[in-house]
Design a protein around this nucleic acid. Structure first.
Ligand SMILES: [Zn+2]
Ligand SMILES: [Zn+2]
Ligand SMILES: [Zn+2]
Ligand SMILES: [Zn+2]
Lengths: 142, 142
DNA sequence: TCGTTATTGATAATAATTCTCAATTATAAC
DNA sequence: GTTATAATTGAGAATTATTATCAATAACGA
């Protein structure tokens, strides 16, 4: 999905709640959606400042919390640093995250989605998202 | 696999490196292997002290780091707390982790293991472990 | 436009993790 | 068993990530 479309979806979710659309929030979400790899809160703050100077780290965390409550992003811990990434995809797929270079690769799982859901659903478990994060090493870093 | 067997495997790994087997380490590993659910570092420290009083939190973190370097455990973040758990299973399976009650349920994925590995391996990705962690809500907490 | 109320950024406070260091101890060689 | 060496220990300090606080600002419906 295109970042612009994802941005619209998030803004609509904001309107649906008692949350307001501010330049800071817009900059933070936009930066997150356009990032090619998972970003830390501080990196995200720095990026957001490029389009809206002066964005505070606290606002970044607040926005991330909102995004999490909407189930639009998830936190992933790599080693000793925490990275945050966005994903609003509807399809069942995996995020292959390299612990060395932090590159994120999307991996389609539609072929096994059915059986997968079945295995999980058998015990009555409800996944928070339909994207699975798998940490490891990418082909370039092995 | 039984905790005693897992303990032996870890101790053997220690001997293979330049790491020594101490009462503290033994207590920490044992506590981790016997825990029925993911434990935080502090909880683990408390548990380890039951068999070997005085275990320091720093030693817990050091031991956890060693276990991680051997790929025997992984850190999983749930909300704002970090949990640590052990898994030395060889089989391809999923860890269904409830974000409400923090219960960990094992879910066999042997049926789709082949296709799954194929999907991931296609892009040359090497998973750090053969267990996938999936966060969500268990049947009791929905 | 105006009033209400959420949001802001800076800063302080908290919590998790890592670092430091002198004392201890596991391990291997003798 | 003794001894030498180097890893490990626990306590506490230092660091780092995250959250709470607060007065000033700004979004948005009326
Ligand atoms: Zn995705
Ligand atoms: Zn890589
Ligand atoms: Zn397992
Ligand atoms: Zn539960």
């Amino acid at each position: 999905m295109k970042p612009e479309r994802q941005l619209d979806i998030f803004l609509a979710a904001l309107r649906g709640s008692d949350l307001r659309i501010t330049p800071s929030r817009r900059a933070i979400v936009q930066a997150l959606l356009c990032a090619a790899r998972p970003l830390s809160a501080e990196e995200l703050c720095h990026e957001a400042c490029r389009t809206h100077p002066g964005v505070g780290l606290a606002s970044v965390y607040r926005t991330l919390e909102a995004l999490q409550s909407f189930k639009y992003i998830r936190q992933v811990q790599l080693g000793r640093r925490v990275f945050v990434f966005a994903c609003m995809d509807e399809s069942q797929h995996a995020h292959l995250i390299c612990s060395v270079c932090h590159q994120l690769t999307e991996c389609d799982l539609s072929a096994i989605a059915g059986t997968f859901q079945q295995s999980i659903g058998r015990v009555g478990f409800q996944p928070a998202t339909n994207a699975i994060e798998i940490v490891g090493t990418c082909s370039a870093c092995q």
